[in-house]
Amino acid sequence: MTVIAMLSVAPVVEESMASEVAKAIAALDDFDVAYETNPMGTVVEADDVDTLLDAVAAAHKAVDGDRVSTFLKIDDKRTRTQDASEKVSRVEAELGREARRTR
């Protein structure tokens, strides 16, 4: 996969957003993307930017609310294929150890 993105979709509310965030994550399942959710967002991988953007649009639309905030950062490496785990592995190689995880 060549397009990697960091996605965060959430309604603008004071109470828990978990149920709405879950709807956004579930919407990704309808697309040919891989994803990994973490406490601050979801890393999404796709073969091309069009597939990625279609999946992101569906995730955004899946969240109910008077106001929905979506953050998207795209890394579109066009010279070769690279997945998110490879990017982490390269940093870990430089560290000489596994990167720390949250508790």
Score class of each variant (00 low, 15 high):
26 A>L: 04
33 V>N: 02
30 D>I: 04
28 L>W: 02
68 V>L: 01
8 S>I: 13
11 P>L: 00
3 V>E: 09
57 A>F: 13
16 S>C: 06
66 D>M: 06
26 A>F: 05
34 A>G: 14
35 Y>S: 13
47 D>P: 00
19 S>P: 07
53 L>F: 11
9 V>W: 06
54 D>T: 05
46 A>Y: 01
95 L>W: 07
34 A>I: 14
32 D>Y: 01
76 D>R: 08
64 D>N: 02
22 A>Y: 04
94 E>Y: 05
96 G>W: 03
102 T>H: 12
43 V>W: 07
47 D>Q: 10
30 D>W: 04
33 V>M: 04
28 L>Y: 00
37 T>H: 07
70 T>R: 04
8 S>F: 12
31 F>L: 04
97 R>I: 00
25 I>W: 01
83 D>T: 13
63 V>N: 02
67 R>F: 07
29 D>C: 03
64 D>I: 03
85 S>M: 11
70 T>I: 10
16 S>M: 08
20 E>Q: 05
31 F>T: 02
66 D>K: 07
21 V>E: 04
95 L>P: 01
86 E>S: 08
72 L>Y: 09
65 G>M: 01
87 K>D: 06
74 I>A: 11
101 R>V: 05
17 M>P: 06
77 K>A: 15
7 L>N: 05
30 D>N: 04
80 R>N: 15
90 R>N: 12
92 E>S: 03
53 L>H: 07
49 V>K: 09
46 A>K: 00
70 T>L: 01
30 D>E: 06
86 E>G: 14
1 M>Q: 10
